[in-house]
Design a protein around this nucleic acid. Structure first.
Lengths: 140, 140
DNA sequence: CTTCTTTACTTGAGTGAATCAAGGATCATT
DNA sequence: AATGATCCTTGATTCACTCAAGTAAAGAAG
């Protein structure tokens, strides 16, 4: 389990609840990944492969070094969840795609990670809209 | 930067905003720690030492193995931000406390980590209360 | 007071994430 | 044909994290 990102001493209830939310969310994500013997990073990458794409695109979207993606994809490939194919348009590049097993594991992960779904489900449709509006405003 | 914990394909706007929030929060925490040359885990532990306490208490609160805490504290100690003292009541145990420099760095970290404060600050007091209530309900 | 168990922490080994520096291959331009 | 940029991989290093094992001391039981 990764250590929680906080709290710094919180000066308001809202901040404290925000921290709680982030903490619970992160732990739920990690737990769901662990159920499938995946690291959070592996689950993250696997979840972004609904369409075949290049390593560089992944790195840019995830905001990390390309070599980091290489490592994670290598491990996913070793697990048989992902395959790298040459890019016919550019022989430097490689396209990553989920294998059928990768699709299945990703689907099971989406089922296991119930936190966001469950949390939102505790709210009425009206409340969901309110929450969305408030968080959008808070995010600036 | 740690990879974001999501998204799994989101089925509602509220879920998507929730993910955004968590992602931005985590990145802001990491960035604030990096400003002070700390890892997120180091900033986390440092922030929990407002009062002197034992290694085991930290491990339990943070939900990780005691040996993990040992390592992090060793590094914080090497940075001069934390000190371990023998526990006079129990010679097996050691008490960890921030040094004056640790206090200062922790304070600077709290200043640098503006995300939660800023986000909440974008809302009126009424809205803050609404958000708190909605998140509490969502957290179950 | 000895033995046994439990508690508190450390050490060592191993995995994985992340970053940086450097390099090979290919593309794109001139 | 040469130059430079781009895409990715490799290697080295640091840190987080976990597990297994070990030391030392506390606590309980005989």
């Amino acid at each position: 389990m990764a250590l929680p990102n906080g709290p710094v001493t919180t000066s308001s209830e809202a901040e404290a609840v925000l921290f709680d939310l982030v903490d619970v969310y992160d732990r739920a994500f990690e737990a769901a990944a662990a159920e499938l013997s995946l690291s959070p990073a592996q689950a993250c990458v696997l979840g972004r492969l609904d369409e075949r794409r290049g390593m560089g695109a992944l790195a840019e979207e995830l905001g990390c070094d390309a070599s980091n993606i290489t490592q994670i994809v290598v491990r996913l490939e070793a697990l048989g969840l992902v395959a790298r194919e040459p890019n016919p348009r550019d022989r430097r590049a490689r396209l990553v795609a989920r294998t059928p097993r990768g699709d299945e594991v990703n689907h099971r992960f989406a089922t296991a990670f119930t936190f966001a779904r469950t949390a939102v489900g505790r709210l009425s449709p009206d409340e969901q809209d309110q929450l969305t509006a408030l968080l959008r405003k808070a995010l600036g």
